[in-house]
C-alpha cells in the first residue's frame, strides 16, 4: 500500500472540497483521515495539508469524546465492518 501511494501525487482532499471548518459531527468528512482501527492517519499517508490536518485531529478527538467514534478497536471490541456505523 505504501509503495503504491509513493507514486501517486498526493493532495489535500479537504482543500479540494473547500472545507473551511471540519465539523466533528459530520463523520463522512472524518472518515478519510481514519484508519481501519479508527486511528488518526498521518499526513504523509493521507496527503492532507497541515492546516486541515490540525483541524481534523481536533474534530476526531471531539467525536471520540461524544462516542461517535471509538477510541480503540482491539480484539475484545471487534467491529465486524468498521465503517458500517459511519453513515
Amino acid at each position: 500500500m505504501i509503495d503504491r501511494k509513493k507514486f501517486k501525487k498526493r493532495y489535500c482532499k479537504y482543500c479540494e472540497a473547500k472545507i473551511d471548518y471540519v465539523d466533528y459531527k459530520d463523520l463522512n468528512q472524518l472518515k478519510f483521515s481514519l484508519s481501519e482501527r479508527f486511528k488518526i492517519m498521518p499526513r504523509r499517508l493521507t496527503g492532507n495539508c497541515k492546516r486541515h490536518q490540525e483541524s481534523v485531529t481536533i474534530a476526531i478527538k471531539r467525536a471520540r469524546q461524544t462516542a461517535l467514534i471509538p477510541y480503540i478497536v482491539d480484539r475484545k471490541n471487534v467491529v465486524d465492518s468498521p465503517f458500517e456505523m459511519i453513515r
Binding site: 459531527k25 471520540r64 462516542a67 461517535l68 467514534i69 471509538p70 477510541y71 456505523m85
Partner: peptide, 20 residues
C-alpha cells in the same frame, strides 16, 4: 440527531439520543 448507536458503552448503555 435522534437515536444512534454509541461507539463504546457509556454508563452501561449501547445507544443514545443525540441532540445539539
Amino acid at each position: 440527531m435522534g437515536m444512534r448507536k454509541l461507539a463504546y458503552t457509556v454508563e452501561k448503555q449501547n445507544r443514545g439520543y443525540y441532540t445539539v
